[in-house]
Each structure stands twice: as C-alpha cells, then as structure tokens.
Design a protein around this nucleic acid. Structure first.
Lengths: 166, 166
DNA sequence: CAATTTCCTTGCATTTCGCAAGCGGCATCG
DNA sequence: CGATGCCGCTTGCGAAATGCAAGGAAATTG
C-alpha cells in the first residue's frame, strides 16, 4: 500500500474515522459517482453526467477532482481516443463496496425504492459473494453492469448470475 | 413494520436505493449525529453540540428536524427535567449501524485516524458481534459509550469487553 | 479544414452553511 | 415569588457551495 501524503490531521474536524470518511465523500454526489464506477461500469464524464440523477457539470468536475485527490479514483487518458479520460476506482475506492452495499440494503428495507425485493434479499444473504464479485470485476477490468439501472422493471430476474452462487 | 407515508417517489432524484439513502442522510453532519446516538450514548442537543466536531446550532437543529421527519430518530421530553428533549434512534435508525461500521473500518484502513488499530481489527473480525452489541444497547436503553471518544490515547485497551467476545 | 465530440470552465442567481447573538420555556435558588 | 441560569432552539449576516446555461480548448471525424 503506497503511503498517502495523509492530509495533515490538524485540518480535520476530528480524528474519528467516521468523521474523516464523511469529510472525504460525505456529500450527496461523491458516492453516486463511486456507485456508477463500481456497479454500472461507467468510466467517462459524459456517462456520469447522463446517469439519471442530473448532476451539474461543474459539481461533477469538482467531485472527480476531489476524489482523485483523495486517492479514491484515478484518471487516465484513453489509448484509443485521446480526448477521453477514463476514470477508475483505486483499491482504496473499491474498498468502499461494503459501505455502498449496506447503504443499498438499508434503503431497500426502509424506503420505497425501485430495487426489486428479490434481488436485495439475495444480496443481503450473500454479502460476501456480492463483494467478491464486485472486486473481481474491478480486478479484471470487467465493465459489465453488475446491477441494471433501477427504475425499469426487472422483477423477473430472481437469480442474478454470478452473485448468489455462493 | 409501520408503513411510512413514503415521500412521493417523484420528488426524488431517482429510485436507486443508494441515491435515496444519500438524500436522506448524505451530508457531513447527519451520520455524526447518528454515530453519537448509537455508540456514544448522547441524547440531548447540548451533547451533540459539544461532541467535538463543532456543528453550528442552526444546522444541528435542522438535521435533528430532518432526521426526525425521516423517521430515523424520535424526540421526546425528559420525564425528570421538562426543559430537556431526549433524542433516540428508531429501529430504522439503529439499522444504520452496519453503514457506520463499514465507514469506520474503511477510514481506519485507508486514512490516518485516531482509532487504535487493535480495536479496529477486532471490530472487523467480529462485525456481527459488534452489531449485536450495538443493537442490545439500543434495545435496553443502555447509555454506556460503546467506543471512547477518539483522540485521547486508548491504545492499551486491546480487548473491549462485550464486543469481541464472539 | 470545418464540424462534432468530450471534458470541462466561467458567470450568475439561489441555496446552504458557519458563526455570533439572542429569545422563550422551564427549573432552581434565595 | 422574583432573580438567575440552563436548554433548545431562532435570527441575521457574510461566506461558501450549488444549479443552470453558456462557452471553450483539445482531439477526432468527415
């Protein structure tokens, strides 16, 4: 693990890990970008922009910059099309998968979401399998969306290949 | 489970559970309040105000209001001292424990935090035990702080009673 | 070389935030 | 029962963050 410059602790609200996490990505947009990178296979500015939640371009640019500065994502120019910047999670970034998973499970249980219950129950039962699959996709640069965009009806797919297989 | 009025889905950015979670408590303060309620045994406005991160009073009041509206906390007048309002997590609120735990583990691993490594390793190995203990304390109204305030040196306590005990 | 795509930046109006001060309700003290 | 103090806020104000529309540099395409 490369030792990060480690933001001088004195500039922080406190040394509490939860507080530090929230200072790093605790706004309403950062985790959505991370979600898109992690489970939807997004890579480019344009994709994030069109991803459904209508983030403003200046905010998107700002968050990408901050997440990169925090070492959660990395940006690199596309080999084929040099206009294009491909963003990718770092290991520090992919380690946020458990946080996102718990967020997803909580909302699916307590709020009226577009997530199909069957899928959620499946993920809740097989947390580790889901996390392993997320990490595998990241390691192997597999861009296939793990989860379809919520909103469309996808109720019928009661078993998701590659997830619940324990 | 009482069916909540369920904020009309149309006012949301999207139906994605992660997005909904972030709209509900995805700012830099809400989860700190929840943390204080959950693991530090805080109950009153004053305690939150003095909890180390210097939240402004208007913001604190606003967040308490929103969290109550979201059904994550409940406010009730103290029986003994009627000036006092006691806040308490609802079941929906205590269900955020896994999210906080993952947040804590992530930051402890990747950032320079005030959390003693031994304690974190312990919690990571015994996630379920930690969560069970948090829930027990909530159920039994046990106000004992589960975790000491980070910042003071507490390195020596390498085994926390009631947590790592399987 | 002109047109298009991609990834932003810039202005500007609106909202949110941090900070300090103050206020009403309740309790305690003399 | 009047003075004083604590608790949970509200208000006002300047600063920062946000949303929106427009535009612009660099690379690619036609």
């Amino acid at each position: 693990m490369p030792d990060v410059p480690a933001k001088s602790r004195s500039k922080r609200r406190s040394g509490c890990p939860v507080s530090i996490s929230l200072e790093t990505f605790g706004d309403s947009w950062s985790l959505l970008i991370i979600r898109d990178l992690m489970v939807r296979g997004f890579r480019t500015f344009k994709e994030f922009q069109d991803s459904g939640e209508r983030i403003a371009t200046n905010i998107l640019a700002d968050r990408l910059r901050k997440l990169e500065a925090a070492g959660i994502i990395a940006a690199e120019l596309d080999g084929a099309d040099r206009r294009r910047v491909n963003y990718r999670l770092t290991e520090k970034g992919i380690d946020l998968a458990p946080v996102l998973l718990e967020l997803l499970i909580w909302a699916a249980r307590h709020e009226n979401t577009a997530a199909p219950c069957a899928l959620i129950a499946d993920m809740e039962k097989n947390r580790n399998a889901v996390l392993a699959e997320v990490r595998r996709r990241w390691r192997e640069h597999d861009p296939t969306p793990l989860i379809p965009k919520f909103g469309a009806d996808i109720e019928r797919s009661n078993s998701h290949p590659g997830i619940s297989g324990e």
